[in-house]
């Protein structure tokens, strides 16, 4: 798994590539924390994430709480159907905005 942080003015995009499991979640969490520490508008680009276990859901929960505490906004981008199913089963999906593309995410986050 690789995580890249990209800044678009006041918006921070966290781009994840690879699988998020118990091996890689700590690295994802560390980067997510860096992003939420400096920005309250976060886009999480997951279109190149094929697999995410409950270890990844824990990091999503942490991001949600950090952002909520700052009255910010988080948008997920390009989430696979399988990962959306998991988010749906666990009730996570109701708390996140999910869009298809980075451009859509930037539009939503700019208005937030």
């Amino acid at each position: 798994m690789e995580v890249t942080i990209k800044d678009f003015d006041e918006i921070t995009i966290l781009e994840v590539k690879g699988n998020i499991d118990s091996k890689t979640a700590p690295e994802f969490e560390r980067n997510a924390k860096l992003a939420t520490d400096k920005s309250e508008k976060i886009g999480l680009e997951l279109s190149q994430v094929e697999f995410m276990s409950s270890a990844g859901l824990r990091v999503l929960l942490m991001i949600y709480r950090n952002i909520k505490a700052q009255n910010g906004r988080v948008v997920l981008i390009g989430v696979s159907e399988e990962i959306q199913d998991v988010m749906s089963t666990t009730g996570f999906i109701n708390f996140f905005t999910i869009v298809e593309t980075l451009d859509e995410a930037l539009t939503v986050l700019k208005q937030a």
């Binding site: 276990s53 409950s54 859901l57 824990r58 949600y64 709480r65 009730g91 996570f92 708390f95």
Partner: peptide, 21 residues
């Protein structure tokens, strides 16, 4: 538990829930 807001939610047990589900 699964409909609770993410602020209040306990995260434990999700892995086994997903397994069984």
């Amino acid at each position: 538990d699964l409909t609770q807001t993410l602020e209040e939610r306990e995260i434990g047990g999700l892995g086994i829930f997903l397994t069984i589900n």
